Simulated assay, not measured.
Amino acid sequence: MKIDLTVENGPCNTELRSWCLGIAIYWLIQITIGVIFAPNVLNFVGFAITVVANICLLIGTQREKRVLVLVWLIFAAIEAISFPFAVLGVIFHYGGYREAVGTSSVFAALLIYIITFLLIAFSARLVYSFYLQLKNNEAGSQAPRTLNVV
């Protein structure tokens, strides 16, 4: 089974732009609820990073600026890099990773981190595809146009 890194359309053949807007709104709501119900230092640092990245994704999607969409992809890379640390932090109970998700159960915390990682991976695939669409549109509009000379 081969999974492509990019897609032409979002799920159900919808456009990627609307999915990117939905992704930004979802992560903003999700991190806000997480900070309200389980406030700690780890959540406030994540809150700042997530808000900046998702505001950039919102603006980048609306104005079709690929540099701002790239900021969200950097956020997704940071999340992917921090996933093994979160798993180890939950298992060995260091760094407040269990408390950051609002539970002291090892299995519940691991489940939450795994689901979050899968959502980030799904979202990153769609945002990366949209980024490539913007890049191709920008490159296509700057290409020199040739005219037939009579």
Rank of each mutant, 00 (worst) to 15 (best):
K2F: 06
I3E: 03
I3K: 02
E8P: 01
G10S: 13
P11M: 07
E15H: 08
L16A: 05
R17M: 05
R17F: 01
S18Y: 11
W19F: 11
I23Q: 04
A24E: 11
A24Y: 11
Y26D: 03
Y26T: 14
T32A: 13
T32M: 06
I33W: 03
G34R: 11
F37E: 06
A38Y: 11
A38E: 04
P39F: 05
L42V: 15
A48G: 14
I49G: 08
T50D: 13
A53F: 11
N54H: 15
L58W: 10
E64D: 02
V67F: 06
V69T: 13
F75Y: 15
A77F: 10
I78M: 10
F83P: 04
F83V: 09
F85D: 00
A86H: 06
G89F: 09
I91S: 00
F92R: 07
G96K: 08
Y97V: 08
Y97I: 04
V101M: 08
V101T: 15
G102H: 10
F107E: 14
L110Y: 01
L111N: 07
I115K: 01
F117V: 03
L119R: 02
A121W: 04
F122Q: 02
F122G: 03
F122N: 03
S123A: 13
R125F: 00
Y128S: 10
L132Y: 01
N137L: 12
E138I: 14
E138S: 13
E138G: 03
S141A: 13
L147A: 05
N148K: 08
